[in-house]
Structure formats: C-alpha cells, structure tokens
Design a protein around this nucleic acid. Structure first.
Lengths: 234, 234
DNA sequence: GCCACGAATGGATCGTCGCTCCAAACCTGT
DNA sequence: ACAGGTTTGGAGCGACGATCCATTCGTGGC
C-alpha cells in the first residue's frame, strides 16, 4: 500500500463545544428563516458543520428538537410578559403576546397543536388559569374556562401556521399571496356560500390581530356571563 | 432468444375500474383503521392491488388525497345534520356533530387544521354563519362571531387529533394510556403548576365531550353579551 | 372488422428524509 | 503514559413521496 499520503482523513473536530442549547438555537434560526419543513437534520449538520451522531448525542429525535425549540420560545415569551397590574387587561395582554409570538414564529403554532402535552402549553395553561382566577372566576369553573381560552388560542395558532406554510410554499411575497387568496374567494359560488361571499368584501380591511382580540373578548365576556348567571343552580 | 416461456409478464389488470372515489374510500378506511401515518401510497397500492401510476392518475398527490377524504367525511356529516328547528340549539347540535365526527375520525381534525382553506372548513364556516344569523347575531358581527366559534372548534379538533396520534403511537389501549397521562400529571410540581395540579383530581371524571360543549356555551353567551352591550357605540 | 390513439395501469427508479451505528478523536483521572 | 468514558463525524439503511415510461385497455373513425 504505497502512496496513501492523501488518504481521506476525517474532517477535524469542531472547535467550540456542541451542546443541546447550541443545537436548539440553530434549529430556531432555521425554523424562523425558512419554515418548519426546512428543519432537516441534514440542514442542521451543515449549519453546525458536524455530523448526525453529534446531534443525536444531545437530542433524542426531530420531535424532541422541535419541542425543545418551542419550549424555548414560549418560556422566553412568558418570562418577558410581566404580569399586568390591571387584572381585566392581563388575559388580553397574555393572549396578544402569544398571538404576536406565533405570528413571528408560525412553526410554534403548529408544534403546540401537534404535541399539546409538552411543557410549553402547560405553562400557557397555567398562566391563563392564574389570570382568570385573579379576574374572579370561581374555582369550580376555572379549568373549563381556561380550556376554552387555550383551545381558542390553539385554533388560531394552527390556522396561522397553516397560512405561513401556504405562503412559504407559494413562493410569492405576502401581498401577492393575499391577492391570490382574495381572488379565489371572489370566485366562490354566492348561492352555495352566501355568508362567506358576503364576508369577502371585508377581506381588504381584515386584520387578523384585531379579529383575534375580538375573539378573546367574546370568550372573556362569555366566561363572565356564564359564571354570573349560572351561580350553581344545584 | 430461446426459452422465454416464463418471461416475467406484468401482473394482469384489475377487473373493477379504478376511480378517484374508490381511491378516496380506500384511503378513508386506512385512515380510520390505522391512523394518519398509516396512509402511505405503498399501503394504498397494496390495498387496491395496483401501482403508483394508477393512483397518481386520479389524484394529484398525498395532500390532495387527504383533503379529498376530509371533504368527503365533512360533506356527509353536514348533509346528515339537518337543520334543527330550534335556533338556540342549532349551533350546539352542529358543534357536537362536528366533535363526534372528529372523535371518530381524528385525522379529520388534523387535516382541517393543516389546510383550513379547503372546502371542508368553508362548508363548516358557512353553516356556523347561517345558524348564528338565525340566532339573531347582527350582520356586522357575523364574521367575527363565526370565526371565534370555528377557531375554537379547530383548536379542540387539533388537540383531539394529537391525542389520537399519541394513543396510536403508545400502542396501549385507551384506559392504560389515560392512566399513564394521569400519572404524568400527578408528578408535576405543585409549586410551578398550581392550577394544573389542582385540576388533576378532576381528570378521572373528565369528559372531553362535555367540556367541549361548555366551551361552545361560553362562546355563544359571549357573542350574545357582546352584541347586546356594545350596540355600536360610534 | 380493424386500426390508431388517448386514457388507464403497473412497477422500476429517483432523491430525500429520519435515524442507526461504529470508528475516530478527544478528555480526564490516575 | 495509558485506560475508560464521552463526544464527534459520517457511511449506510429502510421508508417515504413522487416521477417516468412501457404496456394494456377502450373506443370512435373509416
């Protein structure tokens, strides 16, 4: 075996140590920049200039990584959202903070829906419960009330994630995409879909964030009404 | 070229004609029996004893197939749900019908969340709008009100789909799975999660269906309250 | 009666994915 | 110096969705 001068030595080791945290941060950057489908283990190895083994040494699997990224974003958000002094505004502020975070990171919305038992959603549920309790919701109605609000937030989060995915897949910019959607709605049969058809004119002035807030207000009003009226009939 | 007596003839053609509808029905059967991950094109070719080409001739791609299956289930459901004469009960009946359908076909919940612009959800939105209108919700508040309810339903649907996926992945039966979940909740830190911890005792007597209905009532009460109180301040 | 042509079909094949596995490289204590 | 454990890099596996093309069927024109 003579000239093995240039035998394919394996690549040198990374200088900075790898860690679960470094990997999660890199994952978040990929997710935010290119969407959830872009987070592949191969893309991660390229970005971190490492191999699969190194990553799987710190992370169980892709699901674990997505969950860790979601927990990270949600935990940071909840930490930043200091409790509003005004109890009546507190749930709104919390909900709006979640909404904004999910708009900024649509993949978080998808993940919360995919695995609702992970810490991220538990934290959210806990915070919502506390604020509803501070608002005067009786203990016996707390878990039901919190569930309604959390389910609503999850629903909106999921739709937001779906829209972001569709936008990314269409490879158009935001305004062109919205125009396409509006055009498709206008082509709907007004006989089969009278309500949807009527709503299409509002599409231009439509504001997702404001509509979300209206929904929160409706639910808060409903919680109040139900607990005031139905004060334990039994 | 002597003895080609047993040259590998391709398999004979199917006798009954293939069609988009036959394929969709087969997909629904697989989805109901084995969950959404089990719907692979290979499984479909086996079940239909055919090849990929035949399927892709009738169906654009896997997403198209899932959407078609969802549209089929939802359309059948909405057709069966004849309008309740009593307007106050109509939205509840609709919501409950959707809930039951999604419990029976958890993959429908996931798909509604994944692609909320497809006909299935449009139909749902339309029906909800009609019934809210019949209930006396003013036109200007219709789209917002319908959105809240639909988003809530979507949120619950998504959680249900997630639970079904987790149950299937765990390969346990339903009661063993619930016991595992309850055990995990009991191990939560009561200091960090006081509200969740308090709610754990209700887990035994917990009824998803009833909780869903409570949520619907809360939202309906909220819609009514908001529209009574805020009668156009401007 | 036959043939030509489009529609329908079966299956080999491709590229990509998540993940496993193992040897190489590194670290640490003795 | 060296042994044992930890961390790293990357070849390779099986499964997936999707494409592609040769084959086969059905059918309308002559």
């Amino acid at each position: 075996m003579g000239l093995m001068a240039t035998k394919p030595r394996r690549a040198p080791r990374r200088t900075e140590a790898l860690s679960r945290d470094v990997i999660v941060k890199a994952a978040i950057e990929i997710l935010d920049a290119e969407g959830e489908d872009a987070l592949t283990l191969r893309a991660l190895t390229v970005r971190l200039t490492t191999g699969y083994g190194a990553i799987y040494h710190h992370v169980a699997d892709r699901g674990d990584l997505l969950a860790a990224a979601t927990d990270d974003v949600v935990a940071r958000l909840l930490a930043d959202l200091v409790a509003d002094a005004e109890p009546r505004q507190a749930p709104r502020a919390l909900a709006l903070g979640l909404f904004d975070a999910i708009v900024a990171h649509p993949w978080v919305g998808a993940q919360l829906n995919r695995e609702p038992w992970r810490p991220a959603l538990l934290d959210i549920y806990e915070r919502v419960s506390e604020q509803l309790q501070a608002l005067g919701v009786p203990d016996r109605a707390l878990s039901d009330s919190a569930s309604v609000l959390v389910s609503y937030i999850l629903g909106v989060a999921g739709q937001n994630a779906a829209n972001a995915r569709a936008l990314a897949a269409s490879k158009m910019d935001r305004s062109a995409f919205l125009a396409t959607v509006a055009a498709r709605w206008s082509r709907l049969d007004p006989v089969k879909y009278p309500s949807v058809y009527k709503a299409r004119t509002h599409l231009r002035e439509h504001n997702d964030r404001q509509q979300f807030l209206v929904g929160v207000d409706v639910i808060l009003a409903g919680i109040e009404t139900v607990n005031r009226a139905g004060a334990r009939p039994a």
